[in-house]
Each structure stands twice: as structure tokens, then as C-alpha cells.
């Protein structure tokens, strides 16, 4: 009880212990759900864009319930930038790889020469690779948009 009182006394205006604890518990599940939405996009509603937005929303939620510094402990600005670049690169790289292996640009069935999964199997698997790239890019851009806009550019105080 005393510990609770001490922790409550430390909170700034607008922060609540109940909300913070709930968000702490919820965030891993939100991120897990985002991953599920990305990788299960073949069989259910979902895909890279939607899953990426869910993943990005988890960081936005952390930044809202705590402050921005805490949210950036989960995902630093540098790692976020790297993930965004990697996401865009996965998509364009897959497309370029198709052209290198003798097919058309973005024709995934050409990748059959690299790993034999069959042309139709590669068209299914190529979509999966591309969706992961889209998801990474969308996640990093969503988080970056909120962080930069919310803190007026200095990435420190936040909302």
C-alpha cells in the first residue's frame, strides 16, 4: 500500500497508475496481434498495411500513457529508422531479385530458380515476403510520425 502511494505521488499531471499498468499489460498482446495480422494476411482479413498500423499503434499507446521517453525505450529512434529502411528495401529488393533471376520486375515466380518451391508456390510466398516488408515500413513510419509531431521535433517531451 505504501509503495502504491509512493508511486502515485511520483506521477505527473494527467498520468494515472491504473492506465499505466493496463497499458503495460496490453502492449505485448497488441504487438502479438499486429504480427498475427501481418503473417495471417493470406487466410483472413489483414496484411502488411493493417498489421503495421496495429504495431505502430502500440508505440503510440505507450507514448500516450507514459511519456515519449518511455515509449522510445521500447523502440529507439535509430532502430526505428533502420526498420523503416529495411522494410522498404525488402519490397524493392524482392522486386529487383525477380528481375535479376530472369523474370519480369515483381514477377515472383522467377524466384523458383533460387529455391525450388514451384512457380505458384513462389507467387504465394513472394506476397508473404512483400507483406512483411510493408508491415515494417508502415510500423516505423507510424511511430515516427507520432513521435515527431507529438514532441514538436525534439523527440523529448512529447504529449
Amino acid at each position: 500500500m505504501k509503495l502504491l502511494q509512493e508511486r502515485t505521488a511520483k506521477l505527473r499531471v494527467g498520468e494515472s497508475l491504473i492506465i499505466q499498468t493496463a497499458v503495460r499489460i496490453m502492449v505485448p498482446f497488441i504487438q502479438l496481434f499486429g504480427l498475427y495480422v501481418i503473417v495471417h494476411g493470406h487466410y483472413s482479413p489483414g496484411g502488411g498495411f493493417q498489421g503495421g498500423v496495429v504495431l505502430g499503434a502500440s508505440f503510440v499507446l505507450l507514448a500516450l500513457a507514459f511519456d515519449q521517453k518511455f515509449s522510445m525505450k521500447y523502440m529507439s529512434e535509430k532502430a526505428n529508422g533502420v526498420l523503416g529502411n529495411v522494410g522498404a528495401l525488402i519490397y524493392t529488393g524482392t522486386a529487383a531479385l525477380c528481375a535479376i533471376f530472369g523474370g519480369l520486375f515483381l514477377d515472383y515466380s522467377a524466384l523458383d530458380k533460387l529455391i525450388p518451391l514451384g512457380p505458384v508456390g513462389w507467387r504465394s510466398f513472394g506476397i508473404f515476403i512483400v507483406e512483411v516488408g510493408v508491415g515494417l515500413a508502415v510500423m516505423s513510419i507510424m511511430a515516427a510520425l507520432f513521435w515527431v509531431l507529438g514532441s514538436n521535433g525534439d523527440m523529448e517531451e512529447g504529449l
Binding site: G47, F49, I141, L145, V148, L149
Partner: peptide, 19 residues
């Protein structure tokens, strides 16, 4: 689906310029 994502990015850039 793609139009929604474009609208989000347009909103983001516009808010940045407004700031």
C-alpha cells in the same frame, strides 16, 4: 486500402508543415 495509407501520410506531412 492504398488510398487510406496515402491519406494518412498526406495528413502527417500536412500537420508537419502546419507545425
Amino acid at each position: 486500402l492504398t488510398a487510406i495509407v496515402v491519406s494518412v501520410s498526406v495528413t502527417g506531412v500536412a500537420l508537419a508543415i502546419l507545425l
